[in-house]
Design a protein around this nucleic acid. Structure first.
Lengths: 200, 200
DNA sequence: CGAGTGATTGACTTAGATCAATGACCGTGG
DNA sequence: CCACGGTCATTGATCTAAGTCAATCACTCG
C-alpha cells in the first residue's frame, strides 16, 4: 500500500531527504511539528513516553509509507520517531504542504483519498486480527488480496507476510503447509494461489 | 474516537437519517457510491464478496464512527454494508460533501485531520495487537489511554474493552485480576488506574 | 569458503481460548 | 412488588493451537 503519486511531481522534486543511522532520532515528542515524512528506505518507530517513563511503541513505519501525517494538524509531535535500522526519509514541510492543499484542491483531494484508503486498509487488517485461528486468518488474507485468479504475489519474504498478518514465521510455514496438503492452496515461485473450492 | 464536529453544523443539520433493521443492507458492492455515513446507533459490517462467493468481513463499524469514507473517492462501493443490529446512520451525500470541501478549505482541512487521526489511532491499535501477552497488551493499552494520573475511564462494558484489545472477556477478567493482585493496577467504579511503578 | 538469512520441520510448553457455573444487577410486565 | 429473563462480571476446569526453542538445508554474497 504505497502512497506513490499523491502529490504533484514538482512538489516532490523540491523536497529534501534525510538519512538516519540506526537508533537515530528523526524528531522528538514535544518538538514543534514542522514536517511529515515518507519512508524511502528502512524502518522507523514512533514511540511515546508515558507515565513512569514507559516507552510505548505506537507504530512501526515501513518503506513506502507516510509517517506522522497527523502532525500536519498538530502544533507539536506527540511521540519520538527513531530509526529502527538505517533509513532514509523524504521530508515534506508542513507549511508548504498545507499551502499546497489550500491552493490546489486537486492535490488536497488526492491527499484525502490517500488517507481514506489508508483508514480502509488499516481497518481491514485490524478486522483480520480478530480471527484467532491461524488457518482462517491466512485464508482471509489470501482471499482479500488475491486477484481474480486467486493468485497473490508475495512481496518480500514469508517472514514479512507472517508479521503482517500477526503470526510467527513458524506458524505461517506450518499453516501454509497444511493448507497445501489439504489442497486449499498452491504455492508458486512468485506467490500463493488460492484453490477454488466452493466451501467457506 | 468519535468524529464529532468535523463538519459545519449547518451541513450536518441538512443531512438525512436512515434506520436499518438487523441484517438490512445499507448499500451493495458495485452500487454507485453516493454517500458516506456516520453511525449514530448500532453496528454495521462491511462485507466483500470475493472468490468462490467467500464473504469477507472487512470492518465492523460502531456508534460514532464514520463509515465508507473511501467511497468519497471511488465511483462505486467495494463491499456490502449490512446492519449487524438495529442501527441508525446519518447520510452525507458524496456530491455535497465534495462540493463543501472544495468551497470551504477549513472544512476540507478538518476532514483531513479527522482522517489523519483515524490513521494514527488505527496504527496504534494494530501495533498493540502485535503484543502477544495478554498482560503486556493490557498494560500497553492502559498506559496509552491513561490520563496524567494513570486513570483510564471504561467506556461501555469490560466486554467491549476486551474486544477492542483483542482478548476474550475471560482472558481480560483474569489478566485484570492478576494485575490487581500484583498491585500494578487498581480498579475504581468508573475505570482502571495504572499504579505508578518505575518498572517497565 | 564461512557468515548471514530465509525456509522448513520437529519437539515441547503454555498462555489463552473454550465451556461451564454462579452471583449481581437490572428492567419489565403481570 | 416480585418473579423472571437477560446481560455483565467473575472464577474454575480443560484443552489445544500457536508460541518457543532448536536443528537442518538451501542460497547468496563478499
Amino acid at each position: 500500500m504505497p502512497a506513490l503519486d499523491w502529490l504533484p511531481a514538482s512538489f516532490r522534486e523540491r523536497s529534501r531527504l534525510r538519512k538516519l543511522a540506526p537508533d537515530e532520532c528523526l524528531f522528538h515528542q514535544g518538538d514543534e511539528a514542522q514536517a511529515i515524512f515518507e519512508i524511502e528506505l528502512g524502518r522507523l518507530r514512533l514511540i511515546r513516553h508515558a507515565l513512569d517513563s514507559r516507552r510505548i511503541v505506537l507504530h512501526t513505519g515501513h518503506e513506502g509509507e507516510l509517517l506522522a501525517e497527523a502532525a500536519l494538524f498538530s502544533s507539536e509531535y506527540h511521540c519520538d520517531a527513531v530509526a529502527a535500522v538505517a533509513s532514509r526519509v523524504r521530508i515534506y514541510p508542513k507549511r508548504e504542504l498545507l499551502a499546497l492543499f489550500r491552493d490546489d484542491r486537486e492535490a488536497a483531494e488526492r491527499f484525502m483519498a490517500v488517507l481514506a484508503r489508508q483508514v480502509q486498509a488499516l481497518r481491514a487488517r485490524l478486522e483480520e486480527r480478530n480471527i484467532r485461528s491461524a488457518r482462517e486468518r491466512l485464508l482471509h488474507h489470501l482471499a482479500l488480496h488475491a486477484d481474480a485468479d486467486g493468485r497473490m504475489a508475495i512481496e518480500g519474504t514469508l517472514i514479512d507476510l507472517a508479521t503482517e498478518i500477526g503470526l510467527t514465521p513458524e506458524a505461517l510455514y506450518r499453516t501454509l503447509a497444511a493448507l497445501e496438503k489439504d489442497r486449499m492452496v498452491r504455492r508458486t515461485a512468485s506467490g500463493i494461489t488460492l484453490e477454488r473450492t466452493g466451501a467457506t
